[in-house]
Computed example of a mutant assay.
Amino acid sequence: MLDIATDIREALDAGRRLAVATVTAVDGSAPRALGTSMAVDDRGRVYGSISGGCVEGAVYQAAEAVLATGEPALHEFGFTDGDAFAAGLSCGGSIEVFVREIAPLGARGGIDARIADELDATASGRPAGIAIVVRGSARGALLAATASAAEVVSEGLDAGAAERILRELTARVGSGASGTAVVDCDGEPLTVLFVVSSTAPRMIIFGAVDFSAALADASALLGYHVTVCDARPLFATSTRFPSADEVVVAWPSVYLEQTVVDERTVICVLTHDEKFDIPLLTTALTLPVAYVGAMGSRTTHERRMRLLADAGLGERELGRLHSPIGLDIGGSTPQETAVSILAEVIASRTAASGAALRRVDGPIHRAVPVGAPLPAPDEGLVR
């Protein structure tokens, strides 16, 4: 729902009723992620997509039925259907979809003002979260991250269950992790989908060089909040890095010590200068970030590792460094190098092999468990 928050809010403001279909479970090679939504309004207009075209027709019909009855519904599409090509996923996976009517504020069955606030927060780029009960007697109940337990008892939930759901929702908003969980409601198990929208993950690029400009461009396309940092004001300018959200003139290691990072942050060191690289990497490799990579030849890498060890880093910290940076795809231009780097970032985040799909068995689209540890740079990656 939050992935199409702007469209939903605009339709509600125009007085439209909508049926919102949200992916609650994914099995096999289904192409869209948990929490992805598609909506159909009472004039037949479609917003968003949940399967890249595989089951949109069937979901559209399910949404029309919910608009007609007002009753929420849970559907499964995919290889469990009699004919996967008729109403399922021809790629061989399956998805479970929950469909619920959403009406304007003040209308019969209208959404709570707090849900509207979550939609507005998402549309403006602020963290937000919604919990949807998809199984149990309270099926269809919506809870907002800003609500209190007392405010949602009317949704068919006792205060204790509402409190547990809201506590889980708040934690997931903080971590940026959507997912499902079973919550006890006065002895009854309720299946709850937590859909969260958090701030964009950070891509911090050190070194104002041509490779950095290409990496900034590509990272922005992937939804990162991009920062380029260099100590040289002549090179670190917004004109040279138009796609960056921030261009910072500062000593790299000092900036990194002072800026905010989290477990989704990516740090790429492209400076090629030991006086910057060593103190910078000494700090970066001790931070709880998703990825630390450094550009350089194998000779540069070997010397860098010795200097970092001399600076006091142990095997665990040194094992986190992706260097030489990127996957082996034969790239040489700044743009091709950017693709190589981001391919490794994605493979690290998903614990994927980085091998050609035609040489890999199993589903193409794989869910990554919440909190799953990242592999070490040399584990499972084609370098």
Rank of each mutant, 00 (worst) to 15 (best):
L234V: 05
D230Y: 10
S348I: 00
A218H: 14
P373K: 06
S178D: 05
H322K: 12
D83G: 06
P242W: 06
V247M: 11
L2P: 03
D230V: 04
A14N: 15
G70I: 06
H365K: 11
V40T: 15
A220C: 08
L12R: 07
R43V: 14
L280T: 06
R45C: 04
L318E: 05
D117E: 13
S219L: 07
G92A: 06
V382A: 14
T22S: 09
G78L: 00
L270E: 09
L34K: 07
A171W: 02
A138M: 04
V266C: 13
A372S: 15
G176Y: 08
D217K: 13
F79Q: 10
S212W: 08
G88H: 11
K275A: 12
L2R: 10
S253H: 15
R298T: 05
A284M: 09
P104G: 07
L285T: 05
V360L: 11
S175V: 04
H272C: 05
A356G: 02
P127R: 06
S323Y: 08
A216P: 02
S148R: 11
A372H: 13
L313R: 00
L342M: 11
M1T: 15
S243M: 15
D217P: 00
A338T: 00
R135A: 14
A113T: 14
G330M: 03
A352Y: 04
T180H: 04
P377H: 12
Y224F: 14
G312W: 05
V247F: 10
V192M: 07
P288N: 10
R45N: 07
R320C: 04
L270V: 12
V370H: 08
L342V: 01
V345C: 03
A159P: 00
D230P: 09
P375I: 02
Q258P: 00
A343I: 03
G52E: 13
Q335V: 07
A39C: 08
S353Q: 11
L321T: 01
V173N: 00
A116H: 13
L12M: 12
R108Q: 14
A141K: 01
I278P: 09
L18S: 09
E302V: 11
G314N: 01
A131N: 09
R366S: 11
A150P: 00
S332M: 12
V66P: 07
R135M: 13
R100M: 04
H75Y: 13
I329P: 01
A352S: 15
L193C: 09
A103E: 02
G82V: 13
T300M: 10
M38I: 12
V360E: 13
G293N: 02
S198R: 11
A87V: 09
M38K: 08
P252M: 11
L313V: 00
A25Y: 02
L157Y: 01
G296T: 03
A367W: 12
G78K: 01
D361Q: 10
L190W: 06
